[in-house]
Amino acid sequence: MSHKQIYYSDKYDDEEFEYRHVMLPKDIAKLVPKTHLMSESEWRNLGVQQSQGWVHYMIHEPEPHILLFRRPLPKKPKK
């Protein structure tokens, strides 16, 4: 599979999560399941490479070739 064609967005966040999206080329996108969110082993098997802790959290129906990921931000110590 062509890992060079996978595009990784910059990371962005809110108060709770860090987010990123990953755009897959058409040949890989056709392998994305339409019935469920992928486990880490499933998206890694497609060639997506990112650190541990990312969760495929949403399917964007109009653009199924874009995978939406998030992971919890580290808890800030209370002052």
Score class of each variant (00 low, 15 high):
6 I>T: 06
51 S>H: 07
36 H>N: 07
34 K>R: 12
38 M>S: 05
47 G>E: 03
57 Y>D: 00
48 V>M: 05
8 Y>M: 01
5 Q>A: 15
4 K>M: 08
40 E>T: 07
78 K>N: 10
11 K>R: 09
35 T>A: 10
51 S>D: 14
64 P>W: 05
44 R>N: 06
59 I>A: 08
63 E>Y: 07
24 L>P: 00
11 K>I: 14
58 M>L: 08
1 M>C: 12
12 Y>L: 01
23 M>Q: 10
19 Y>Q: 00
1 M>T: 13
36 H>E: 06
15 E>A: 11
48 V>I: 15
61 E>L: 08
48 V>S: 00
4 K>T: 13
64 P>E: 08
39 S>A: 09
77 P>A: 12
42 E>Y: 00
49 Q>C: 10
37 L>P: 05
19 Y>S: 00
31 L>Y: 08
18 E>R: 05
53 G>S: 11
52 Q>N: 14
10 D>H: 10
20 R>F: 02
45 N>S: 13
36 H>S: 05
70 R>D: 00
19 Y>W: 03
72 P>I: 05
79 K>W: 09
15 E>I: 06
70 R>I: 02
63 E>L: 05
33 P>F: 00
31 L>H: 11
77 P>W: 09
39 S>E: 11
42 E>S: 00
74 P>H: 11
78 K>D: 13
46 L>Q: 01
78 K>H: 14
45 N>V: 07
1 M>P: 09
6 I>N: 06
57 Y>C: 03
6 I>C: 06
64 P>G: 07
58 M>R: 14
36 H>V: 01
74 P>D: 14
46 L>K: 02
44 R>Y: 00
51 S>Q: 09
1 M>D: 15
62 P>Y: 13
20 R>I: 06
5 Q>D: 13
20 R>K: 13
75 K>N: 14
37 L>K: 07
2 S>V: 12
59 I>E: 05
49 Q>K: 13
69 F>A: 02
17 F>K: 01
17 F>S: 05
4 K>P: 14
11 K>D: 04
66 I>E: 02
11 K>F: 10
47 G>R: 02
73 L>K: 14
20 R>H: 07
24 L>W: 01
4 K>Y: 09
26 K>T: 11
8 Y>V: 06
65 H>E: 10
3 H>L: 13
29 A>N: 00
26 K>I: 09
14 D>S: 04
13 D>W: 12
71 R>P: 00
33 P>A: 03
62 P>N: 15
51 S>M: 08
64 P>K: 07
24 L>Y: 05
59 I>D: 03
72 P>W: 03
79 K>P: 14
68 L>C: 09
43 W>T: 04
7 Y>E: 12
35 T>S: 12
19 Y>I: 00
69 F>P: 01
61 E>A: 10
50 Q>Y: 02
5 Q>G: 15
7 Y>Q: 07
53 G>F: 05
7 Y>D: 08
20 R>Y: 06
29 A>R: 05
41 S>T: 13
76 K>S: 11
68 L>K: 08
19 Y>K: 01
31 L>V: 06
50 Q>E: 02
61 E>W: 06
53 G>L: 02
37 L>W: 00
51 S>E: 14
47 G>F: 03
44 R>K: 10
69 F>D: 04
56 H>E: 03
32 V>D: 01
68 L>F: 14
19 Y>E: 05
40 E>K: 05
59 I>G: 04
65 H>K: 02
28 I>L: 15
58 M>W: 05
71 R>L: 01
23 M>P: 02
8 Y>T: 05
71 R>E: 00
8 Y>C: 07
58 M>I: 06
53 G>H: 07
8 Y>W: 02
54 W>F: 03
72 P>R: 10
60 H>L: 08
59 I>C: 08
29 A>C: 08
36 H>Q: 07
23 M>D: 06
73 L>M: 09
77 P>N: 13
59 I>H: 13
11 K>E: 10
28 I>E: 07
48 V>H: 06
71 R>Y: 03
59 I>M: 12
63 E>M: 08
60 H>P: 06
70 R>N: 00
18 E>F: 01
39 S>V: 08
30 K>P: 06
18 E>S: 08
37 L>M: 07
76 K>F: 12
15 E>V: 06
62 P>D: 15
57 Y>S: 03
59 I>N: 11
18 E>I: 02
67 L>W: 04
31 L>N: 09
52 Q>H: 13
65 H>G: 09
43 W>V: 08
27 D>N: 11
11 K>Y: 11
2 S>G: 15
19 Y>G: 02
45 N>C: 09
30 K>F: 10
16 E>L: 12
69 F>N: 04
56 H>Y: 05
7 Y>I: 15
2 S>I: 11
29 A>Q: 06
72 P>A: 09
32 V>S: 04
62 P>A: 15
9 S>L: 11
69 F>M: 01
23 M>V: 15
